[in-house]
Design a protein around this nucleic acid. Structure first.
Length: 285
DNA sequence: TAGTTCACCTGAAAGC
DNA sequence: TGCTTTCAGGTGAACT
């Protein structure tokens, strides 16, 4: 379940493979994922050089020469896997040397450096689109500041939460307020800041929001350093697992003792907006 | 207008 | 052992 740290880890794995490489062949194995693929996507990708590979929120953005950008969202279960075969030789439409497509390999990109990038997504919540780089993509227009960037501050949280009656957990999942947070890291950041996920966002003091702001950054930086969290579906581009799940304090730890020093509480699971929330009712207020 | 719920989707795990 | 049910969650649309 890729959130910002997982997507950033994938980007770092793909960057040396894709940057300045030319897509020699694009294979699209189905017409859609979450949404239909853009018209003639394989044809439009073939022969294009990747000038840069960026990340915005949970989106990967491959800037192509010619002024277009390939947008990639991994959804819930999307993986970008990199393989290399020195002897890969294209004959007709089949590339000898690379493994045959596996189940759920929806898009396969072969590069002129012999590398192959495969987008595999069993649950098909992912997406791909092409858009004019300069015009931007509507999905990106509404997104809030990057949590690790200069635009995200405690003051921003104060302003964004002002008057909000919804629970802080729900507010932090709103990508318009802050980009890239998902269920796991919101639970972890709220626990680290001692704030109950049930508390109305607009009723948290500026001082506590400053603590929350710091906790969000701290948990995201730690997760990126660990290569993300591997639960069920996620893999790095190399196929390796991330290991931040070993650093979880509350997520998926229902019934275990609260890890906060001196806290007698037990990690509890509740449901908010049809989603699991994990918290310690003793030290999160 | 703001907040909440649902649908999409498949695989793993649990329950029977 | 095999079948059925439940759960996981990012996002936009529909609903309250």
């Amino acid at each position: 379940m890729p959130e910002l740290p997982e997507v950033e880890t994938v980007r770092r794995g793909l960057e040396p493979v894709m940057t300045n490489a030319v897509i020699s062949r694009a294979q699209v194995n189905r017409p859609d994922l979450r949404w239909p693929f853009p018209a003639r996507m394989a044809e439009r990708l073939t022969g294009r050089r990747v000038a840069a590979l960026r990340r915005r929120s949970k989106y990967l953005l491959a800037d192509l020469d010619g002024g277009e950008t390939l947008l990639i969202h991994l959804g819930m279960s999307g993986r970008m896997l990199v393989t290399k075969d020195e002897s890969a030789v294209q004959i007709g439409t089949y590339v000898h040397g690379h493994a045959a497509p596996a189940k759920h390999d929806h898009v396969v990109l072969d590069f002129d450096n012999g590398m192959r990038v495969t987008f595999n997504d069993p649950r098909r919540f992912g997406a791909m689109d092409l858009f004019a780089t300069e015009a931007g993509h509507p999905l990106l227009a509404r997104i809030g500041p990057e949590p690790l960037g200069n635009g995200f501050s405690a003051a921003h949280l104060v302003q964004a939460f002002r008057g909000k009656a919804s629970p802080v957990k729900t507010a932090l999942l709103d990508q318009r307020i802050v980009a890239g947070l998902g269920n796991i890291y919101v639970c972890e950041a709220l626990h680290r800041s001692g704030i109950s996920p049930r508390r109305a966002a607009g009723r948290i003091s500026a001082a506590r929001l400053a603590v929350l702001h710091a906790a969000i950054r701290q948990v995201l930086e730690a997760a990126i350093a660990a290569g993300g969290s591997s639960l069920r579906d996620y893999r790095q581009a190399s196929g390796d697992l991330g290991y931040f799940q070993h650093g979880f304090r509350v997520y998926d730890r229902e019934g275990r003792p609260c890890p906060t020093d001196g806290c007698p509480g037990t990690v509890t699971r509740i449901v908010q907006s049809s989603r699991s929330t994990f918290l310690c009712p003793q030290c999160q207020r």
